[in-house]
Amino acid sequence: MEKIGDEMSEKGMSGYFSAFLSRIGGVFLAPDAAFKQIIADKVGVWEPFLLILLLVGIEGAVFASFVYRVILAIAESLSYLTGNVPLGLLGAIPWIMVILMAVVALIFWIVVAGIAHISAKYIFKSEGSFVQLLKLYGYSLTPYSLVILGTVLLGISWATWPLSMFFNIVATFWVVLLMAVAVKHNYNIDVGKAFISSFIGPMVVWLIIVGVFWAWLWLIISSFAGGFV
């Protein structure tokens, strides 16, 4: 936060914005150098926090606008039976979606960074700050802008679905790669261990959670059938 304050006081808002653009562009072009610079600049956690909120919020808004259009279309289609009934609570669905997506993204951010931190620090016995990793993980999400672009294209025309899918796949691989680079720089470990911490670790935890959920569901269902089936 200190560095941002300095930048803002020295160069004003435009200077800060220019530095922000440079950081974002750096994450795309040369993530190694960009992450090193972010660590050296001691950028505050608020910037990546707002970045995630913006990315997920805008993706949520684009998606919610589509849902809103579908709700309007259904209401119009059924107006024969229902009359011109105001949307009421249905109109709030897009807003609820945006808020839910933002909340889930923030929880995901903290959980995934937490798993990577535990893995890097306690399994690979390396040193690094969790808050620092949170910041780098925030910037690692910048390729998610391609998902927004893909969703907008899909909204404009269904015919663009191959391009939209391509953007989604590229964004996913890119985010995973950037997360591995972020762990590598934050804990000074090799990229293999960083990949295990940033991707394999969370995947294993995810699989365990899914496994426990299915086992629990299996127990519930089998209990209705009078015991183990």
């Binding site: 922000f20 653009l21 974002i24 562009g25 795309f28 990315l55 927004i148 672009l149 907008v152």
Partner: peptide, 14 residues
Amino acid sequence: RTILGGAFVAILFV
């Protein structure tokens, strides 16, 4: 880098 950052902001704006 600045141009790419600008493209990123432009996508958000779009």
